[in-house]
Design a protein around this nucleic acid. Structure first.
Lengths: 341, 341
DNA sequence: TTGAAAGCGCTAACAC
DNA sequence: GTGTTAGCGCTTTCAA
């Protein structure tokens, strides 16, 4: 393994100094065309590859940004990461990934680790467990951009990219009402995350606006998963007054609900079911699933754009933008009630 | 924004030198307990956070490894990344992500970028487009671990973690034969990627072993996607002798096949359909989809383990391991033929 | 336009 | 057990 060539090697070869080489390579400083050409040629000849680390140490900019998400395994987050990476690539930024797996402890560690790696900023979606967010304070203190998406937190006064989740909950509910359903249940997580609270509030508002009662027994606070969906559905169907429609916190949960309903011969749309996220499978299950599209790719693109804006400012927090995307209702069989409304 | 504290600040505070501080913090060198304690306390007091960059520049180790995948949006790759990150986390390694989006050009750029970032090694799965792999040579030349998973390449003599794809193709085909299907078609990608070739060869071998002819018209070389599945299925169903079963290159393609077959009233298992990857949705579509599980999480874990092994060796390539995982057949409705075999 | 020189924060011989 | 010292590869004043 031969030693890697550095700007020093190039300088020696051309009998100039490293500063000149550095200038020639960086491209913007005042330098003669001939020197620049010579340097570039020699660099190529010697198979030179810059050491971004050294440059970063000196300049204080790594062009690496940290992304913290609960898990890449969720399609929603995977799509966002995909778009963030795409949107940042052309500006020279790379993405270092950290998964919290929904544990605060991992999240705390993630912030610490990323900061030690000297990332230029952090884009994050907080874990379900996260209540105290003081571990993010250091990012702000270092004047580095911190951007939250989807799952934000009231204590963190930073720019955000989110969905209008109140509206998401509202239109899901109103759609069911429009379809003639009258006793609508809601399965969501126990965790006090804004996203989920907003949806629940949207649900309640839609009920009220349509003179329907909000019934405590119709709201299941548990987890979000296929299993939780099955569980929630069984529980609901044991209510004195059974619901005629169920809103599930995400498409996976909705899947579990459908599974259960099919087993007990209440196959949707007999009982209406709608989810959130428009997962890849949602269009292909039977009955196919009505859902709310959360536009993850658009969200990722907005994150990238907003991040670039922040990082170009002297003070990234000089104006704290909150980008809110519109949810879209996707109607499929699982809510296609034929009953007169 | 106050200046970040460095080991120099700690040293000054305690009237010792930076080397002592460095030693105390790294924890292993000979140093008195009192000094160590004092340093650690002061570090905490001053809210010290190490600059890994400086350490990396000096030591040549960044503890960052690059992972190149076609796209995180595919659940298969997302799961692998998830496991790689998990498996490496405890050893202090972080993952920097690069997506090729199935383009060689991006892949070339990825290797270059990651090398410039001084990653300690690269774990990659090559793009569909990739034929020439010389862009990976530099990684090996720098004596850094290069590990390929799933999609490997004959020209790259590096350790690999793959599935026994020949077997995967074989057992998928044999399963269909066992179910009584006799005229089995195969939809796969045109690209010459080992994974897919192996599966095709497994398919052919299984046919031969069962005295069934390999019919050219039954093999569709195109793309892999829901759309390609629909397209492939229509094409196959226009053959003079229509197939009675279709093996699709992945679950998404299988989804498209099923969609098409349902439309023309040949709903599986009337015509058998099997896919590859066991995507999250596969168990929930109707009919639910038989498939081959490729154990992405196990694959990620093996990648992490093998990588750690490589990096601990003086010469990472002193023995070139090839870990091959066993595919598992998952039987569901889409191949549950009732016809006598 | 180019060179000299200092230094980013840390590590690691080598000396004592 | 601790200090001295040099330097990782690059950028960036300051001076020429």
């Amino acid at each position: 393994m031969n030693k890697k060539t550095t700007i020093y090697d190039i300088a020696k070869e051309l009998n100039i100094t490293t500063s000149t080489v550095s200038r020639a390579l960086s491209g913007f400083s005042a330098i003669s065309d001939t020197t620049r050409q010579a340097v570039i040629e020699t660099a190529k000849k010697l198979n030179y590859s810059p050491n971004r680390l050294a440059s970063a140490l000196k300049s204080g900019k790594t062009y690496i940004i940290g992304v913290i998400v609960p898990s890449v395994q969720a399609h929603f987050f995977a799509s966002i990461i995909h778009s963030i990476e795409e949107g940042l690539k052309n500006s020279g930024y790379r993405v270092i990934l950290y998964q919290s797996n929904e544990f605060v402890e991992n999240e705390i560690n993630g912030v610490k680790t990323l900061l030690e790696a000297q990332v230029d900023g952090i884009i994050a979606s907080i874990s379900l467990e996260t209540e105290d967010v003081s571990h993010f304070a250091e990012v702000i203190k270092q004047n580095k951009p911190l951007l939250l998406f989807d799952r934000e937190h009231a204590d963190l006064k930073v720019p955000t990219v989110t969905l209008d989740d109140f509206k998401a909950g509202y239109i899901a509910t109103r759609h069911l009402i429009d379809q003639g359903y009258r006793n609508i249940a809601f399965i969501t997580t126990v965790h006090q995350i804004k996203v989920f609270n907003d949806r629940l509030n949207g649900y309640k508002a839609a009920l009220k606006d349509n003179n329907l009662a909000v019934i405590a027994d119709n709201i299941i606070l548990g987890g979000l998963s296929i299993k939780d969906g099955r569980f929630g559905a069984s529980k609901l169907m044991r209510n004195d007054i059974k619901p005629d429609a169920i809103i599930a916190g995400d498409d996976f949960t909705a899947l579990g609900v459908i599974k259960k309903l099919k087993e007990i011969n209440e196959t949707p749309p007999k009982i209406g079911v709608i989810g959130f996220a428009n997962e890849a499978f949602s269009a292909y299950i039977t009955p196919d699933l009505s859902t709310i599209d959360q536009h993850p790719n658009q969200m990722g693109i907005e994150c990238a754009k907003l991040f670039l804006k922040m990082i170009q400012q002297e003070n990234p927090y000089q104006n704290v933008d909150h980008i809110v995307l519109e949810p879209s209702l996707i109607v499929r069989e699982s809510t296609s009630n034929n009953a007169p409304s």
